[in-house]
Amino acid sequence: MAYFSKHYHNPGTAPGTLVGKADGGRPVNIRVLDYTGEEVEEVSLANAADCRAYLARDSNTWVQVNGQADPDTLRNLGDLFDLHDLALEDVLNTGQRPKIELYDDQLFIIAAMPLYDGENLEIVQISLFVGRNYLICLCPLDEDPFEPVRKRMRMPNNRRFTTRDVDYLLYALLDLIIDSAFPVLEQFGYQLEEMETDLLERPNQQTLSRIHGLKRELLLLRRVLWPQRELLTTLMRTEDELINAGTQVYFRDCHDHSVQIIELLESFREMATSMLDIYLSSISQRTNETMRLLTIIATIFIPLTFVVGIYGMNFEHPDSPWAMPELGWYYGYPMVWFVMMGITACLLWFFRRRGWI
């Protein structure tokens, strides 16, 4: 996971400049879902200019752009729907902070959708333009993550979408984006449980690396999910004519989900931090246990070394009263072994009584 993943223009570039990435990005796929109170029409378009036919209709239009949008596609959408140049620049320069911008007759929203495959965490920037009777959603992914919303809209007699304005469609998309954090946090929760077991049973360097990696990913999630909650707070309290009072109730529910996600995220971050402390304490405890064992072994061998050192001097003289008489004893050698084993047994008994072993 890169520490810095934002695409940006060179310093000094004029505001609103659209410059594509050198690699060209993913191919663009444009789909339009046009709906009224009676019917839902869904088509795929070859280019952005084909959306013009739907603007004259008395219906609501959802334009979904999947893949990395190139500057030409963004310019065509901007000319057709009168999108602001600064907003188009934010769409092209991915890695933006979640936010909401209010223009004359238009809302521009950037949301962050977290995706996790078990190894890598990806934050996908979703850009939304909301007008009186249209919604434009730009997603850099090849596959459309909003297929569950489309499936609900295709259902017959689904009055929630067909009889409401575009702001309810905005809620449905934001609700899916916000709730996508729940399965990500669920996988993080499983990892925390596994790491907790490893810490108690077999902490090692790999466990430490996993803890650091998880802390970094949780920090990245926090960086994008906190401003996303502020975005929903603004939608709840905005008095713009594009947001109906009846839809704000649904935005409050979406905001409640965001608060739950933040609380889970903060709990997981605290658990990861405490696990790091537990790991360091566990390693320190293991080091102390090892040092204690080595100290006990060294303490046992100190008197034994003293005994064998004395009898290894071999001072023997038949006429000297200061010679070592034990060197001539018949049972001298086994007697020394008996003394050394007795010293070892006494030391082990003393250590066990003190609770050191």
Rank of each mutant, 00 (worst) to 15 (best):
Q96Y: 07
A181Y: 13
T13Y: 14
T61Y: 03
G25P: 05
G312M: 04
P183N: 11
R354M: 11
E230P: 14
R150P: 12
A53D: 13
L225A: 00
G78A: 14
H84Q: 12
P183H: 12
E201T: 15
V308R: 00
T162C: 02
R216P: 08
R75W: 10
L121V: 06
R252C: 00
L55V: 07
T290G: 07
I300Y: 10
L128H: 09
W356M: 00
S320D: 14
F306A: 07
G246W: 12
N29T: 11
E239D: 11
T17K: 13
D79M: 04
G25L: 09
I278E: 03
E38L: 12
L200M: 13
V130I: 15
W62A: 04
A345K: 08
M335R: 07
R352S: 01
P114Q: 10
M313H: 09
H255V: 01
R132D: 06
L231K: 03
L74M: 06
D85S: 11
L280C: 09
V259I: 15
P183S: 12
G78F: 10
T287K: 01
F129E: 02
D70A: 05
T94I: 05
A22E: 15
R150K: 12
Y333E: 02
V40L: 15
R152G: 09
M271I: 15
L294F: 13
L138P: 04
R353A: 04
T344S: 13
A111W: 15
E143G: 02
Y333L: 00
E122P: 06
L173A: 02
V28E: 00
L77Y: 11
N10P: 10
G25C: 03
S267Q: 08
L55I: 15
R159S: 14
T287W: 08
Y168M: 00
M113H: 05
I243E: 09
I343Y: 01
T287L: 15
G131Y: 10
Q96C: 06
D90C: 04
A323H: 11
I243H: 11
L231R: 06
G189F: 13
F251H: 11
I243R: 05
V336C: 05
E217I: 06
G309P: 04
V339D: 00
C139L: 07
A2I: 14
Q205T: 15
E241L: 01
D256I: 04
I300P: 02
P334T: 09
Y116R: 08
I278Q: 06
L107V: 10
F301P: 03
